Computed example of a mutant assay.
Amino acid sequence: MSEAAAVQATIGDSEFDRDTAVTRREPGVYDIDLSAGWTIIKAVNGGYLLAVLGRALADALPHGDPFTITAHYLTASRPGPAVVRTDVVRTGRTLSTGQASLFQYDEDGTEVERIRVLASYGDLDALPDDVRTSAEPPAMPPVEQCFGAEDAPPGTSPVTGSSAIMDRLWIKLDPATLGWVLGAPSGKGEMRAWFGLADGRDADPLSLLLAVDALPPTAFELGLSGWVPTVELTVHVRCRPAPGPLRVAVTTRNLAGGFLEEDAEVWDTAGRLVAQSRQLARAKL
Results as ranks from 00 to 15, higher is better:
127 L>F: 11
169 L>Q: 04
112 V>D: 03
120 S>P: 01
189 G>H: 03
193 A>D: 08
164 A>G: 04
150 E>P: 06
191 M>E: 14
136 E>Q: 13
111 E>A: 14
187 G>S: 08
108 D>G: 05
115 I>P: 00
123 D>C: 01
125 D>E: 15
182 L>E: 12
136 E>A: 10
130 D>W: 15
140 M>K: 04
125 D>I: 02
135 A>N: 10
204 D>E: 14
135 A>Q: 11
100 A>W: 03
169 L>N: 02
206 L>C: 09
117 V>A: 07
180 W>V: 04
120 S>L: 01
101 S>T: 05
184 A>F: 11
146 C>D: 02
134 S>Q: 12
173 L>C: 08
179 G>M: 05
127 L>N: 04
140 M>L: 14
188 K>T: 01
137 P>C: 12
177 T>W: 07
122 G>V: 00
117 V>W: 02
186 S>I: 02
170 W>Q: 04
176 A>I: 09
135 A>C: 05
196 G>C: 08
179 G>R: 03
151 D>V: 06
211 A>V: 07
137 P>M: 13
211 A>Q: 13
180 W>E: 03
201 R>G: 06
149 A>Q: 01
200 G>E: 04
203 A>T: 03
165 I>P: 00
105 Y>T: 11
207 S>H: 07
155 G>L: 05
194 W>P: 04
207 S>D: 04
172 K>H: 07
155 G>D: 11
104 Q>N: 05
189 G>N: 07
179 G>P: 07
207 S>I: 10
207 S>E: 04
187 G>I: 05
210 L>K: 14
159 V>L: 15
179 G>H: 06
197 L>M: 15
109 G>D: 11
175 P>N: 07
183 G>N: 08
192 R>C: 06
156 T>H: 05
108 D>T: 13
163 S>N: 12
109 G>Q: 13
206 L>Y: 06
177 T>V: 14
177 T>Q: 05
113 E>A: 12
101 S>H: 14
143 V>E: 08
114 R>T: 12
127 L>Q: 13
107 E>Y: 03
187 G>E: 08
151 D>Q: 07
147 F>N: 00
193 A>M: 06
158 P>V: 10
209 L>F: 12
181 V>K: 01
137 P>E: 13
211 A>D: 09
169 L>D: 00
154 P>R: 01
119 A>N: 10
193 A>W: 01
201 R>V: 00
118 L>D: 02
143 V>T: 08
137 P>Y: 14
209 L>S: 12
138 P>Q: 06
110 T>P: 02
100 A>I: 10
141 P>H: 08
202 D>E: 10
172 K>L: 09
188 K>H: 13
173 L>Y: 07
183 G>H: 10
99 Q>A: 12
146 C>H: 04
